[in-house]
Design a protein around this nucleic acid. Structure first.
Lengths: 335, 335
DNA sequence: CAGGTAAATATTAACGTTAATACAAGGTGG
DNA sequence: CCACCTTGTATTAACGTTAATATTTACCTG
């Protein structure tokens, strides 16, 4: 099975220096003369040395690893975010440990514990349930920096997030301006305590001088196109019947569009449909979807920046900060 | 920043046993009497102990970690696979380290080296380029089991994969039976040495008694809907003009459908369109897409099973095995 | 009751690093 | 020219676990 891999000791013996000198040389210490370093580096290359990060972590109590917990990678938005996070971190020399909670707090808790047991230097979380975050707060309090990627006010934690409420607010402003007076909102987040979008919607309606009755909020079962499709039965049964459906993500909206096509409901003439996230598919559905952009890239970059700065200069940290990104509308044909 | 976390030593002192006894107790050794174990477990809970896996890894030289390299998480198929892999492994008590190669061998190499430096117990890879796999072979040869999730014949490595060639073969059988005689194939894999699907297509055409000229293979720039859309200019300029377009993934096909709608080409009447992967969106595009299923779940489960069995019983391993899953066609409206 | 075995626990040495000192040699300044 | 830095290197002790032996105690057997 091949020789055991080379260690610092092997290099030390081969190069004729002490183990620690080798360690210093490989870490580029300025305390060593050029020549010594060269000899050692050459030997290291010859032996095909690469460091054992486990040992390094143990000795230095810094693992150069970040944990990422995501609710559901199947969501293209979170996929994008995970992707960017991985790229950014890997450029910064960090490895990524990855876990999904499936929206269940128990899983999330296990994942975080796992991460802690691997001594991760920091944790990025899309929380499963914003009402249950004790275990997250505990991790932060115990000294492992945490950054939330969804806004949880008063969590006492660092937050970098899209302003979801503002996104929904803008979306409903648009719908109101377009003359709609009766709305259905399919909110996939309600079941996990995420009411931002519903709240934003309601605010916009109030501001437009409409009655709260003009908005019906429905909680679909999952985040799939199938479940958006299924909800349309209920939407069409409402009285008065809405003229606009807003879904809290594109994939739900896609299901809505599909239902409309199959049932001869013209979009946007008979029914306006709006999504959320601006995933790639939104442009290519039965009707190009008007949606709210989710700047996954920006969130990821900012989130990574924040966690790294907390890790690298723990002193310059002055308590948690909330940073909310304002989302843009993406106008296409479905409204 | 909170107390430093409890170690075995702390428990040992609190419980009045030696450090090693504590270690044994926590690992459930049968050599200890029930009572001792209870005392120790109680103390451990009281101190909120959880193991330091870094230390454990170093001592036991097994990290209970698996590395996963994927070419592009943005691809919903790979997302699904990554998701299932993570779930399966986490159930088996393994953590997952995650990296994307972006289809670049250099990145893949770096990722694998990173994994090795973290002493992962095994590696699952969607290889970036099947012509450059020395570094993967090297990892396996050096004692870290590797399983490829894409077929690379004669790699000398374990393989669990969808039979991509057979999928394309079946797809073209279908198209031929439907009476088509002139085909365009948008192959997103060509640029990274992945010719399976093109080969399968050609075989089917040959078997149907058609001339090789009836198939035009085009290499789109990326794996996006936009690039599928862009390629349609070229497809329509072909002479004779094809009556069927086969794209090697759904997202490309989605772009094709979009082009057709915008340019008044009726699908499937004027143009048959087929995709590959059976991603969720394929059912909800401008026209429901006929496609080839990619059993991401099955691949993932089998891949995880294989790597775990190699880790857990290295002795019962009799050299690399190739396991190919036969894909099914999914018939919808676009053909 | 000597001798042996088993059960329960302790001791010691790894694992491969980093970090904190320690030491030697050679130069410099008062 | 001796005390004192500086420069280059070596030594030693962590880090928190597991693994391999040791040791003690208790019990059983002939």
């Amino acid at each position: 099975m091949g020789r055991p891999r080379a260690t610092l000791k092997d290099i030390a013996e081969a190069a004729g220096f002490s183990l620690n000198t080798v360690s210093l040389a490989l870490r580029g210490s300025p305390r060593l003369p050029e020549k010594t370093r060269e000899v050692i580096l050459k030997e290291a290359r010859r032996l095909n040395y690469y460091p054992n990060r486990i040992a390094r972590s143990l000795a230095s109590s810094a693992s150069k690893t970040i944990g990422l917990v995501v609710t559901d990678v199947t969501n293209p938005t979170l996929t994008m975010a995970a992707h960017t996070i991985e790229r950014e971190l890997s450029e910064a020399g960090y490895a990524v440990m990855f876990a999904t909670s499936g929206g269940r707090t128990a899983n999330e808790k296990r994942a975080i514990e796992l991460f802690l047991s691997y001594l991760v230097d920091g944790i990025l979380v899309y929380p499963a349930d914003r009402k249950q975050i004790d275990h997250i707060q505990a991790a932060d309090a115990a000294g492992t920096p945490v950054v939330l990627l969804v806004d949880v006010p008063d969590s006492g934690l660092d937050v970098v997030s899209i302003d979801l409420r503002a996104g929904a607010f803008r979306a409903f402003e648009l719908l109101c301006e377009a003359g709609h007076r009766q709305f259905a909102l399919l909110d996939g987040g309600l079941k996990v305590g995420n009411t931002d979008k519903s709240q934003g919607a309601m605010e916009a309606i109030r501001q437009a001088g409409l009655s709260p009755d003009s908005l019906t909020v429905l909680a679909p079962d999952g985040q799939s196109a199938a479940s958006g499709y299924a909800m349309m039965e209920k939407v069409m049964a409402l009285d008065p019947r809405p003229t606009a459906v807003f879904a809290t993500n594109d994939i739900l909206a896609l299901g809505v569009l599909h239902w409309c096509r199959e049932n001869g409901v013209a979009v946007p003439e008979d029914m306006a449909v709006m999504g959320y996230d601006n995933t790639e598919v939104s442009a290519y559905g039965a009707v190009p979807l008007t949606t709210v952009n989710y700047a996954a890239d920006e969130i990821s970059r900012l989130g990574v920046g924040r966690i790294l700065s907390r890790i690298r200069c723990p002193d310059s940290w002055n308590g948690p900060e909330r940073q909310l990104i304002m989302p843009e509308l993406v106008l296409r044909g479905s409204v």
